[in-house]
Write a protein that binds this DNA or RNA. Structure first.
Length: 416
RNA sequence: GGAAGAGUGCCCGAGUGGUUAAAGGGGACGGACUGUAAAUCCGUUGACUCAGUCUACGUUGGUUCGAAUCCAACCUCUUCCA
């Protein structure tokens, strides 16, 4: 499997990115021979990508690194339809405004990883609304629709779940795969794209595009998919300490992002270093083989390297330092997440419960109350046992009050 | 258009007149053990000014002392028929 000639596929294969490839040999030759425009589609379902999408970004990064042209496709058009693949029910339709603002949010992240410009291997961001929106329905049916067999589409695993659960699959959603297939062909015409990459759940959609290409006379197209990433204990990537792990800094601060990686399971360290950092493989080998508590050092490197790529080295080191202070020294670290409270309010006393809610550590007063009962609430590192306790400026330590929920979640209260 | 069935808490899923804020499981959160890991064990898991009150079983009405449970209409979905 690893006898790849092209730098790109060899790298992907060594680092564990590959789940399936269509026509390995042919694709390998293509990548070895010339610079190949390759694309990945991103659905604008939220205003930021989360860690789940990071692997796709790394794919584009390596692509560029090995001399090929990465194209990030924003699903401005397909987002109006919604991908039914492996979903057990239909998503709510998004408004055009939402889609556009999501695209604006998602796009930001690419400049952190890719080089844009006019060169051959410079990255490109395109939006499929550009060609999908103006489509004439009848023409499209005749030109494209005639090439699709409904019988075959119904046989795809990606829609089986839906059908088996006897949930409705609307005609609208059913069209998603046709549109995505058409994207592939269109991108070939516009930019000479030959390869589409994506998560393993996209295999069916991608192959549809390849087939459509055959029928519409494109050169041979190819597919590469990445494995569905779960942690070693089988949990899907992307949840941490209560929230999704967003890539945009305004949705998850670098410290929170760093923490997510710091808490990686032992068994995942090597795998994640290969996938999410660009460190040389022998170094990764060494780090991953650390045993016992020593592996924590590897986790820190993992966290810092990944955070540095996304948020910059400085922010990553700052996050590392903040974590070191709070967890290893038990000291007060300045850069923990914080909330502000007016000095006068603090003087007159604020209830712990309300404060924890305000800090976002608990969703409701009731939850805060439960946490107090369960012994999970601490103020300035002292467990709170009285749910009616109030905090005043007398509780300020070094000018702040430290609220903690559990062992890992800390928020500072700053008077202003 | 006709017929049959379904709609329960974050998710799955019990529950067919009262002791049901609703069994069970999953997930999530907290605690213990550790290494800010995993596994394991324990606890919590509608809201509130928690003594008590309020809001909840597709929606709106109705029957009843009392409804997630019965009735009516409506909405959505599924299957079969036209």
């Amino acid at each position: 499997m690893s006898g790849f000639k092209s730098d790109f596929l060899a790298t992907l294969s060594q680092r564990g990115f590959i789940h399936q490839v269509s026509d390995e040999r042919g694709l390998d030759e293509l990548y070895a021979k010339e610079s190949v425009p390759t694309y990945i589609g991103f659905d604008p379902t939220a205003s930021s990508l989360h860690v789940g999408g990071l692997i796709q970004i790394m794919l584009l990064k390596w692509l560029q690194e090995t001399g090929h042209k990465p194209i990030a496709l924003m699903g401005g058009g397909t987002g109006m339809v919604g991908d039914p693949s492996f979903k057990d029910e239909a998503r709510k339709l998004m408004t055009l405004d939402t889609i556009q603002s999501n695209i604006d949010g998602i796009q930001q992240v690419f400049s952190k990883y890719l080089k844009f410009g006019g060169d051959k291997s410079d990255a490109l961001i395109v939006n499929n609304a550009d060609w999908l929106a103006p489509i004439n329905y009848l023409e499209f049916l005749r030109d494209v629709g005639q090439h699709f067999s409904v019988n075959r589409m119904l046989s795809f695993d990606s829609v089986k779940l839906r059908l088996e659960r006897e949930q409705s699959l609307s005609f609208l959603e059913f069209n998603y795969m046709i549109l995505q297939a058409y994207d592939f062909v269109e991108l070939n015409k516009r930019y000479g794209v030959r390869v589409q990459m994506g998560g393993s759940d996209q295999w069916g959609n991608i192959v549809n595009g390849i087939d459509l290409g055959h029928r519409m006379g494109t050169p041979q197209l190819y597919a590469i998919t990445t494995p569905l990433l779960t942690t070693s204990s089988g949990v899907k990537m992307g949840k941490s300490l209560g929230g999704a792990v967003w890539l945009n800094a305004d949705m998850l601060a670098p410290y929170g992002f760093w923490q997510y990686w710091r808490n990686t399971e032992d068994a995942d360290v090597g795998r994640f270093l290969k996938l999410y950092t660009m460190m040389p493989l022998d170094e990764i080998e060494r780090l991953a083989s650390l045993g016992g508590a020593e592996i924590n050092e590897a986790k820190k490197i993992l966290a810092t390297e990944i955070t540095a790529m996304l948020h910059g080295r400085e922010a990553a080191l700052e996050a590392e330092e903040t974590a070191r202070k709070t967890f290893e020294e038990g000291a007060l670290a300045d850069n923990l997440p914080s909330i502000e409270v007016s000095t006068s309010e603090l003087k007159s006393g604020l209830g712990v419960l309300a404060l924890f809610v305000q800090a976002g550590l608990c969703a409701t007063n009731s939850e805060a109350r439960r946490q107090v009962k369960g012994g999970g609430v601490r103020v300035n590192d002292k467990t709170v046992s009285d749910e009616r306790a109030t905090l005043t400026d007398a509780d300020l330590t070094d000018g702040v009050i430290k609220l903690s929920l559990g062992k890992k979640k800390h928020v500072l209260v700053r008077p202003i």
